[in-house]
């Protein structure tokens, strides 16, 4: 699973920065059929968690109403240099993760 995560290279303490995330996932609704007419089973990313250092800063529960290859962006307040770590799991139990360091100075 390919994913993209973007945070600014550097921030000053107290800055509000945007965390942007894009995950390659079909977000299969369970309502589609393949070219042979067979139902494609539902499989979506059900949960995305974002941690900044030790604390959880954002969590999303997703369903079939979220677009394929889901995009999420949310603001975080820069406190000190630390890792922004994103983890997710889909209906099939497949886990993924991506991280980036937010430099605060």
């Amino acid at each position: 699973m390919t994913a993209r995560l973007r945070v600014p290279d550097t921030a000053r303490p107290g800055d509000i920065v945007e965390v942007r995330l894009l995950i390659q996932h079909d977000m299969e609704t369970g309502f589609r059929r393949d070219m042979q007419g067979r139902a494609v089973p539902m499989n979506v990313i059900t949960e995305v968690r974002a941690r900044y250092g030790e604390s959880e800063v954002f969590r999303a529960e997703l369903g079939s109403g979220v677009s394929a290859n889901p995009y999420l962006a949310f603001p975080v307040r820069a406190l000190k240099t630390g890792e922004i770590r994103i983890e997710w799991v889909d209906s099939a139990g497949v886990r993924g993760g991506v991280s980036a360091v937010l430099n605060v100075a």
Binding site: E56, V57, F58, S67, P75
Partner: peptide, 20 residues
């Protein structure tokens, strides 16, 4: 469609995504 939870460091209750 989705549920969003904000943590103690969230400076704003704001999220951007794409929906079906």
């Amino acid at each position: 469609v989705a549920a969003f939870h904000f943590g103690p460091h969230a400076p704003r209750a704001e999220v951007s995504t794409r929906v079906r």
